[in-house]
Design a protein around this nucleic acid. Structure first.
Lengths: 159, 159
DNA sequence: ATGATAATGATAATCATTATCATTAATAAA
DNA sequence: TTTATTAATGATAATGATTATCATTATCAT
Protein backbone atom coordinates (compact mmCIF):
# COMPACT_ATOMS: atom_id res chain seq x y z
CA UNK A 1 0.00 0.00 0.00
CA UNK A 2 1.28 3.41 -0.89
CA UNK A 3 2.45 5.56 1.98
CA UNK A 4 1.02 8.84 0.84
CA UNK A 5 3.50 10.94 2.74
CA UNK A 6 3.06 14.59 2.02
CA UNK A 7 5.97 16.51 3.33
CA UNK A 8 4.45 19.93 2.87
CA UNK A 9 1.64 19.10 5.21
CA UNK A 10 3.65 16.83 7.39
CA UNK A 11 5.54 19.82 8.61
CA UNK A 12 2.45 21.64 9.68
CA UNK A 13 0.93 18.64 11.35
CA UNK A 14 4.17 17.48 12.84
CA UNK A 15 3.58 19.01 16.23
CA UNK A 16 0.39 17.07 16.66
CA UNK A 17 1.14 13.68 15.20
CA UNK A 18 4.08 11.78 13.86
CA UNK A 19 2.74 9.77 10.94
CA UNK A 20 0.95 11.02 7.90
CA UNK A 21 -1.12 8.03 6.86
CA UNK A 22 -3.37 7.05 4.02
CA UNK A 23 -6.61 7.61 5.93
CA UNK A 24 -5.41 11.04 6.96
CA UNK A 25 -4.49 11.82 3.39
CA UNK A 26 -7.89 10.75 2.13
CA UNK A 27 -9.80 12.64 4.75
CA UNK A 28 -7.76 15.77 4.31
CA UNK A 29 -8.12 15.61 0.54
CA UNK A 30 -11.85 15.27 0.86
CA UNK A 31 -12.00 18.39 2.98
CA UNK A 32 -9.84 20.30 0.54
CA UNK A 33 -11.97 19.30 -2.40
CA UNK A 34 -15.35 19.66 -0.79
CA UNK A 35 -17.16 22.88 -1.33
CA UNK A 36 -19.40 22.15 1.64
CA UNK A 37 -18.92 22.06 5.35
CA UNK A 38 -18.73 18.39 6.23
CA UNK A 39 -19.59 16.63 9.43
CA UNK A 40 -17.79 13.44 10.42
CA UNK A 41 -20.79 11.38 9.40
CA UNK A 42 -21.05 13.08 6.05
CA UNK A 43 -17.37 12.62 5.36
CA UNK A 44 -17.75 8.98 6.24
CA UNK A 45 -20.68 8.54 3.89
CA UNK A 46 -18.71 10.10 1.05
CA UNK A 47 -15.48 8.21 1.66
CA UNK A 48 -16.98 4.84 2.47
CA UNK A 49 -17.76 3.63 -1.06
CA UNK A 50 -14.21 4.24 -2.26
CA UNK A 51 -12.46 3.61 1.07
CA UNK A 52 -14.50 1.14 3.07
CA UNK A 53 -11.49 0.48 5.29
CA UNK A 54 -11.62 3.91 6.87
CA UNK A 55 -13.71 3.87 10.02
CA UNK A 56 -15.86 6.59 11.44
CA UNK A 57 -13.68 6.81 14.51
CA UNK A 58 -10.67 7.68 12.43
CA UNK A 59 -12.61 10.42 10.75
CA UNK A 60 -13.49 11.97 14.07
CA UNK A 61 -9.90 11.69 15.19
CA UNK A 62 -8.47 13.09 12.00
CA UNK A 63 -10.83 16.03 11.85
CA UNK A 64 -9.86 16.88 15.38
CA UNK A 65 -6.20 16.52 14.51
CA UNK A 66 -6.51 18.77 11.49
CA UNK A 67 -8.37 21.29 13.58
CA UNK A 68 -5.67 21.33 16.24
CA UNK A 69 -3.10 21.72 13.50
CA UNK A 70 -5.02 24.70 12.18
CA UNK A 71 -5.59 23.16 8.77
CA UNK A 72 -9.31 22.94 9.15
CA UNK A 73 -11.92 25.09 10.79
CA UNK A 74 -14.68 23.88 13.09
CA UNK A 75 -18.08 25.32 12.22
CA UNK A 76 -20.94 25.16 14.65
CA UNK A 77 -24.17 25.19 12.73
CA UNK A 78 -26.29 24.53 15.76
CA UNK A 79 -28.04 21.51 14.30
CA UNK A 80 -26.29 19.09 16.62
CA UNK A 81 -23.47 18.18 14.30
CA UNK A 82 -20.10 19.82 14.20
CA UNK A 83 -18.89 20.55 10.69
CA UNK A 84 -15.46 21.21 9.28
CA UNK A 85 -14.11 23.16 6.38
CA UNK A 86 -10.66 23.44 4.91
CA UNK A 87 -8.93 26.59 5.96
CA UNK A 88 -6.78 27.92 3.22
CA UNK A 89 -4.89 30.26 5.47
CA UNK A 90 -4.75 33.04 2.91
CA UNK A 91 -6.81 36.04 3.73
CA UNK A 92 -8.50 35.54 0.39
CA UNK A 93 -10.19 32.50 1.83
CA UNK A 94 -11.58 34.24 4.84
CA UNK A 95 -15.33 34.33 4.73
CA UNK A 96 -18.45 34.56 6.79
CA UNK A 97 -21.57 32.49 6.87
CA UNK A 98 -25.10 33.05 5.77
CA UNK A 99 -27.23 30.39 7.40
CA UNK A 100 -30.80 29.64 6.44
CA UNK A 101 -32.86 28.85 9.51
CA UNK A 102 -35.48 27.29 7.29
CA UNK A 103 -33.56 24.55 5.51
CA UNK A 104 -30.14 24.71 7.18
CA UNK A 105 -28.32 25.64 3.99
CA UNK A 106 -25.05 27.45 4.55
CA UNK A 107 -23.63 29.99 2.15
CA UNK A 108 -20.14 31.34 2.42
CA UNK A 109 -19.64 34.87 1.40
CA UNK A 110 -16.49 36.80 1.07
CA UNK A 111 -17.68 39.93 -0.62
CA UNK A 112 -16.67 42.13 2.24
CA UNK A 113 -16.79 45.82 2.05
CA UNK A 114 -13.42 47.32 2.88
CA UNK A 115 -15.07 48.98 5.84
CA UNK A 116 -16.06 45.61 7.16
CA UNK A 117 -12.47 44.53 7.35
CA UNK A 118 -11.35 47.80 8.90
CA UNK A 119 -14.07 47.52 11.43
CA UNK A 120 -13.17 44.02 12.51
CA UNK A 121 -9.59 45.06 12.97
CA UNK A 122 -10.56 48.14 14.90
CA UNK A 123 -12.95 46.19 17.09
CA UNK A 124 -10.30 43.63 17.85
CA UNK A 125 -8.01 46.41 18.95
CA UNK A 126 -10.57 47.96 21.21
CA UNK A 127 -11.45 44.64 22.77
CA UNK A 128 -7.83 43.79 23.28
CA UNK A 129 -7.22 47.03 25.14
CA UNK A 130 -10.45 47.05 27.11
CA UNK A 131 -10.64 43.41 28.17
CA UNK A 132 -7.08 42.28 27.80
CA UNK A 133 -8.12 39.63 25.32
CA UNK A 134 -5.66 38.34 22.80
CA UNK A 135 -7.93 37.88 19.80
CA UNK A 136 -7.04 35.15 17.39
CA UNK A 137 -10.09 34.67 15.29
CA UNK A 138 -13.62 35.86 14.64
CA UNK A 139 -16.79 34.37 13.33
CA UNK A 140 -19.55 36.39 11.83
CA UNK A 141 -22.75 34.74 10.83
CA UNK A 142 -25.99 36.08 9.58
CA UNK A 143 -29.11 34.04 10.15
CA UNK A 144 -32.23 34.31 8.13
CA UNK A 145 -34.29 32.78 5.37
CA UNK A 146 -32.90 31.86 1.98
CA UNK A 147 -34.82 32.66 -1.21
CA UNK A 148 -36.59 29.29 -1.11
CA UNK A 149 -37.60 29.53 2.52
CA UNK A 150 -38.58 33.15 2.78
CA UNK A 151 -42.24 34.07 2.50
CA UNK A 152 -43.19 33.54 -1.10
CA UNK A 153 -40.40 31.04 -1.66
CA UNK A 154 -41.11 27.52 -2.81
CA UNK A 155 -40.46 25.99 0.62
CA UNK A 156 -42.46 28.56 2.49
CA UNK A 157 -45.82 27.88 4.08
CA UNK A 158 -46.72 31.44 3.09
CA UNK A 159 -46.97 31.36 -0.68
CA UNK B 1 -50.25 25.94 44.48
CA UNK B 2 -50.00 29.41 43.07
CA UNK B 3 -50.58 29.73 39.35
CA UNK B 4 -47.90 32.23 38.59
CA UNK B 5 -49.66 33.62 35.56
CA UNK B 6 -47.80 36.54 34.12
CA UNK B 7 -49.91 38.21 31.56
CA UNK B 8 -47.15 40.35 30.13
CA UNK B 9 -45.20 37.30 29.09
CA UNK B 10 -48.18 35.20 28.38
CA UNK B 11 -48.93 37.38 25.44
CA UNK B 12 -45.55 36.87 23.92
CA UNK B 13 -45.49 33.17 24.49
CA UNK B 14 -49.11 32.68 23.52
CA UNK B 15 -48.41 31.56 19.99
CA UNK B 16 -46.28 28.71 21.18
CA UNK B 17 -48.08 27.45 24.27
CA UNK B 18 -51.29 28.04 26.08
CA UNK B 19 -50.42 27.77 29.75
CA UNK B 20 -47.92 29.75 31.72
CA UNK B 21 -47.06 27.41 34.55
CA UNK B 22 -45.01 27.50 37.70
CA UNK B 23 -42.08 25.56 36.27
CA UNK B 24 -42.02 27.87 33.26
CA UNK B 25 -42.09 30.86 35.54
CA UNK B 26 -39.21 29.55 37.61
CA UNK B 27 -37.10 28.65 34.65
CA UNK B 28 -37.74 31.92 32.91
CA UNK B 29 -36.97 33.88 36.06
CA UNK B 30 -33.72 32.06 36.47
CA UNK B 31 -32.71 32.99 32.97
CA UNK B 32 -33.64 36.60 33.53
CA UNK B 33 -31.68 36.81 36.73
CA UNK B 34 -28.66 34.87 35.65
CA UNK B 35 -25.73 36.84 34.42
CA UNK B 36 -24.31 33.75 32.75
CA UNK B 37 -25.29 31.69 29.78
CA UNK B 38 -26.95 28.59 31.22
CA UNK B 39 -27.24 25.11 29.82
CA UNK B 40 -30.20 22.91 30.68
CA UNK B 41 -28.09 20.91 33.08
CA UNK B 42 -26.80 24.00 34.80
CA UNK B 43 -30.26 25.44 35.14
CA UNK B 44 -31.39 22.14 36.61
CA UNK B 45 -28.55 22.12 39.13
CA UNK B 46 -29.41 25.63 40.24
CA UNK B 47 -33.17 25.12 40.45
CA UNK B 48 -33.16 21.68 41.96
CA UNK B 49 -32.44 22.57 45.60
CA UNK B 50 -35.31 25.06 45.75
CA UNK B 51 -37.58 23.32 43.23
CA UNK B 52 -36.91 19.60 43.33
CA UNK B 53 -40.20 18.96 41.56
CA UNK B 54 -39.00 20.47 38.30
CA UNK B 55 -37.53 17.80 36.06
CA UNK B 56 -34.69 18.12 33.62
CA UNK B 57 -36.99 17.29 30.75
CA UNK B 58 -39.17 20.25 31.52
CA UNK B 59 -36.14 22.48 31.52
CA UNK B 60 -35.16 21.32 28.06
CA UNK B 61 -38.70 21.80 26.85
CA UNK B 62 -39.10 25.21 28.42
CA UNK B 63 -35.81 26.54 27.13
CA UNK B 64 -36.83 25.43 23.68
CA UNK B 65 -40.21 27.04 24.10
CA UNK B 66 -38.70 30.32 25.23
CA UNK B 67 -36.32 30.21 22.33
CA UNK B 68 -39.12 29.68 19.83
CA UNK B 69 -40.98 32.53 21.46
CA UNK B 70 -37.94 34.73 21.01
CA UNK B 71 -37.56 35.43 24.74
CA UNK B 72 -34.29 33.65 25.02
CA UNK B 73 -31.31 33.26 22.76
CA UNK B 74 -29.50 30.02 22.01
CA UNK B 75 -25.73 30.31 22.28
CA UNK B 76 -23.46 27.71 20.81
CA UNK B 77 -20.25 27.69 22.73
CA UNK B 78 -18.91 24.66 20.96
CA UNK B 79 -18.25 22.71 24.15
CA UNK B 80 -21.04 20.23 23.49
CA UNK B 81 -23.70 21.96 25.51
CA UNK B 82 -26.18 24.46 24.19
CA UNK B 83 -26.57 27.47 26.42
CA UNK B 84 -29.30 30.06 26.71
CA UNK B 85 -29.43 33.66 27.70
CA UNK B 86 -32.30 36.01 28.28
CA UNK B 87 -32.86 38.30 25.36
CA UNK B 88 -33.98 41.69 26.50
CA UNK B 89 -35.17 42.71 23.07
CA UNK B 90 -34.02 46.28 23.35
CA UNK B 91 -31.24 47.26 21.07
CA UNK B 92 -29.35 48.29 24.16
CA UNK B 93 -29.10 44.63 25.06
CA UNK B 94 -27.62 43.59 21.77
CA UNK B 95 -24.15 42.28 22.28
CA UNK B 96 -21.50 40.06 20.90
CA UNK B 97 -19.37 37.40 22.48
CA UNK B 98 -15.77 37.27 23.44
CA UNK B 99 -14.90 33.64 24.01
CA UNK B 100 -11.74 32.44 25.65
CA UNK B 101 -10.46 29.32 23.96
CA UNK B 102 -8.29 28.62 26.97
CA UNK B 103 -10.84 28.37 29.78
CA UNK B 104 -14.15 28.70 27.96
CA UNK B 105 -15.13 31.89 29.71
CA UNK B 106 -17.60 34.02 27.78
CA UNK B 107 -17.72 37.77 27.97
CA UNK B 108 -20.49 39.83 26.50
CA UNK B 109 -19.55 43.12 25.07
CA UNK B 110 -21.83 45.83 23.90
CA UNK B 111 -19.48 48.74 23.55
CA UNK B 112 -20.08 49.11 19.86
CA UNK B 113 -18.87 52.01 17.93
CA UNK B 114 -21.71 53.63 16.02
CA UNK B 115 -19.91 52.68 12.83
CA UNK B 116 -20.12 49.08 13.81
CA UNK B 117 -23.89 49.21 13.96
CA UNK B 118 -24.15 51.08 10.69
CA UNK B 119 -21.89 48.65 9.04
CA UNK B 120 -23.79 45.60 10.17
CA UNK B 121 -26.98 47.07 8.87
CA UNK B 122 -25.35 47.94 5.58
CA UNK B 123 -23.90 44.48 5.27
CA UNK B 124 -27.28 42.93 5.90
CA UNK B 125 -28.68 45.05 3.12
CA UNK B 126 -26.03 44.05 0.67
CA UNK B 127 -26.38 40.38 1.49
CA UNK B 128 -30.12 40.57 1.22
CA UNK B 129 -29.85 42.02 -2.27
CA UNK B 130 -27.06 39.81 -3.45
CA UNK B 131 -28.26 36.47 -2.17
CA UNK B 132 -31.94 37.05 -1.67
CA UNK B 133 -31.63 36.26 2.00
CA UNK B 134 -34.05 37.71 4.48
CA UNK B 135 -31.73 38.39 7.39
CA UNK B 136 -33.21 38.18 10.85
CA UNK B 137 -30.26 38.02 13.15
CA UNK B 138 -26.50 38.00 13.33
CA UNK B 139 -23.89 36.60 15.64
CA UNK B 140 -20.44 37.98 15.92
CA UNK B 141 -17.94 36.30 18.11
CA UNK B 142 -14.32 36.89 18.74
CA UNK B 143 -12.21 33.99 19.88
CA UNK B 144 -8.98 34.32 21.71
CA UNK B 145 -7.29 34.15 25.06
CA UNK B 146 -8.47 36.00 28.13
CA UNK B 147 -6.03 37.82 30.41
CA UNK B 148 -5.57 34.70 32.56
CA UNK B 149 -4.99 32.35 29.66
CA UNK B 150 -2.83 34.47 27.42
CA UNK B 151 0.93 34.05 27.55
CA UNK B 152 2.07 35.51 30.83
CA UNK B 153 -1.34 34.97 32.44
CA UNK B 154 -1.77 32.86 35.53
CA UNK B 155 -3.33 29.94 33.63
CA UNK B 156 -0.79 29.99 30.86
CA UNK B 157 1.91 27.37 30.43
CA UNK B 158 4.10 30.24 29.23
CA UNK B 159 4.77 32.32 32.30
C1' DA C 1 -66.81 21.30 40.83
C1' DT C 2 -66.02 19.12 36.35
C1' DG C 3 -64.48 17.80 31.90
C1' DA C 4 -61.14 18.55 28.31
C1' DT C 5 -56.62 18.82 27.46
C1' DA C 6 -51.96 20.91 27.97
C1' DA C 7 -47.95 20.26 30.80
C1' DT C 8 -45.17 17.45 33.64
C1' DG C 9 -41.63 14.08 35.09
C1' DA C 10 -39.73 9.36 35.02
C1' DT C 11 -38.02 6.53 31.91
C1' DA C 12 -36.33 4.79 27.79
C1' DA C 13 -34.58 5.87 23.28
C1' DT C 14 -31.49 8.58 20.06
C1' DC C 15 -27.70 10.54 18.19
C1' DA C 16 -23.20 12.54 18.09
C1' DT C 17 -18.96 11.98 19.96
C1' DT C 18 -15.14 9.55 22.86
C1' DA C 19 -12.70 5.89 25.25
C1' DT C 20 -10.90 1.19 25.09
C1' DC C 21 -8.18 -2.22 23.29
C1' DA C 22 -6.54 -5.78 20.31
C1' DT C 23 -4.68 -5.52 15.62
C1' DT C 24 -2.24 -3.34 11.81
C1' DA C 25 0.83 -0.20 9.58
C1' DA C 26 4.68 3.13 9.54
C1' DT C 27 9.21 4.33 10.85
C1' DA C 28 13.77 3.44 12.72
C1' DA C 29 17.36 0.31 13.74
C1' DA C 30 20.06 -3.62 12.78
C1' DT D 1 15.70 -6.16 3.82
C1' DT D 2 14.18 -7.98 8.08
C1' DT D 3 12.89 -6.70 12.61
C1' DA D 4 11.57 -4.02 16.63
C1' DT D 5 9.12 -0.19 18.28
C1' DT D 6 5.28 2.30 18.67
C1' DA D 7 1.74 5.31 16.55
C1' DA D 8 -2.53 4.77 14.14
C1' DT D 9 -6.51 2.19 13.12
C1' DG D 10 -11.20 0.23 13.48
C1' DA D 11 -14.72 -2.46 15.98
C1' DT D 12 -17.01 -2.02 19.88
C1' DA D 13 -18.69 -0.29 24.03
C1' DA D 14 -19.34 3.80 26.76
C1' DT D 15 -20.64 8.45 27.44
C1' DG D 16 -23.25 12.62 27.54
C1' DA D 17 -26.60 15.68 25.72
C1' DT D 18 -30.96 15.89 23.99
C1' DT D 19 -35.61 14.01 22.59
C1' DA D 20 -39.65 10.79 22.47
C1' DT D 21 -43.07 8.22 25.09
C1' DC D 22 -46.61 7.81 28.18
C1' DA D 23 -49.10 7.56 32.40
C1' DT D 24 -50.17 11.12 35.76
C1' DT D 25 -51.16 15.83 37.26
C1' DA D 26 -52.33 20.68 36.81
C1' DT D 27 -54.75 24.31 34.42
C1' DC D 28 -58.59 26.61 32.42
C1' DA D 29 -63.14 27.38 30.53
C1' DT D 30 -67.49 26.02 31.60
Amino acid sequence: MKTGKRSAHHNQVGDHCSRWTVPREEIFNLLIQSQQHLSAKEAYAILNPSNPAIGLTTIYRTLDLLDRAGLVRRVNTGDGQVRFEYRRGHDSDHHHHLICTGCGKILNYRDFEKEELDLVRKTEDILAKKYGFLIREHNIEFLGLCPDCRPGGKNSPLK
